[in-house]
């Protein structure tokens, strides 16, 4: 009879050994997605608990990168001072993810592998050009987060973030049906570098307007190379709305998301630049 057995490996090597076992593997970290009532749970194979592997947990600066173990909890991300300084967009997304009970259990690797269209950690990781360290029975390799596709038996072991000096500005904002413990109906991350006030590097990624995060290149082009001005921000606002029209042309939510995304975009820019969202810069908001 097939049944589910539990393995509690203590090292990545022990996980690799399980990968050559031949039985189906089901990885579990925090369990906040797997245990939800009504979801199908694995019935046979090996349930591999990731909670005992020290290499999978924690945040460290390694050379030119920040390395985040895939089983690092969302709560830990939200309170980490290095991340808050280098990639505030990720800290902010982590702080707004679920409720404290979920943040204490849920992990960054789980958020990526579950690949929910509304996943809050994905847009910040996309704008930061994160790479994922993936391990399967063939060994270990790096994959750009935008190229990652979850598949059974394949484990994310770490997330690598480039750590340029000086750190770029970044920010995150989301909208759900309520303020807290809410699945995003729309979320947005931006990463921006300015030289003498001019925006020289800009990446914008939105979630919950498609099956996976969307890079908003029209909106990037509208602001890229410019100084922040009411005129530039109006062009930016129009580009953001156009992006929504293109992404979800037939969805009824298009009507409000094309306006809401402008509010999120302005909020993120205001937070990144230390302005109030009521600053005259943003007066032209739709």
């Amino acid at each position: 009879m097939n049944m589910l057995t539990v393995a509690r490996p203590r090292s990545l090597d022990a996980i690799s050994a399980l990968m050559s076992d031949g039985r189906p593997l089901h990885f579990i970290a925090g369990g906040t997605d797997m245990l939800i009532a009504g979801r199908l749970r694995p019935k046979d194979g090996i349930l591999v608990d990731l909670g005992q592997v020290a290499e999978l947990s924690g945040i460290s600066v390694v050379g030119q990168h920040i390395r985040i173990g895939a089983a690092t909890t969302v709560a830990r991300l939200a309170e980490d001072p290095v991340l808050a300084a280098r990639l505030p967009a990720l800290s902010q997304a982590a702080a707004e993810c679920g409720a404290v009970q979920i943040r204490n259990r849920a992990t960054i690797g789980g958020n990526i592998a579950e690949a929910a269209p509304a996943a809050d950690l994905l847009p910040p990781l996309w704008v930061a050009d994160a790479r994922l360290e993936i391990r399967d029975h063939d060994g270990s390799r790096l994959v750009a987060i935008a190229d990652y596709i979850a598949s059974p038996g394949r484990l994310i072991t770490a997330i690598l973030l480039p750590d340029p000096d000086p750190a770029p500005k970044s920010g995150f904002a989301k909208l759900g049906s309520r303020r807290e413990l809410t699945i995003s109906k729309l979320n947005l991350a931006m990463l921006m570098r300015q030289e003498g006030g001019r925006i020289v590097d800009l990446r914008i990624v939105a979630g919950a307007i498609g099956p996976r995060p969307q890079r908003l290149k029209l909106a990037e082009a509208a602001l890229g190379g410019r100084f922040l001005s009411p005129k530039a921000l109006q062009l930016f606002a129009k580009a953001l709305s156009d992006e929504v029209d293109t992404a979800i042309p037939t969805r009824s939510s298009r009507v409000w998301k094309r306006r809401a995304i402008v509010g999120l975009g302005y909020d993120v820019i205001a937070a990144m630049t230390g302005h109030s969202p009521r600053h005259p810069l943003f007066a032209g908001a739709a």
Binding site: G31, I36, A37, G51, N104
Partner: peptide, 27 residues
């Protein structure tokens, strides 16, 4: 709710609140 919405099952794990309904017992 058994899906992490209501918090009625909250316990402390090493002092931090978690949903007991979403935590496998063995962990």
């Amino acid at each position: 709710c058994c899906e992490g919405e209501c918090g009625a099952c909250t316990v402390l794990l090493d002092g931090a609140p978690v949903h007991a309904c979403l935590t496998p017992g063995f962990q």
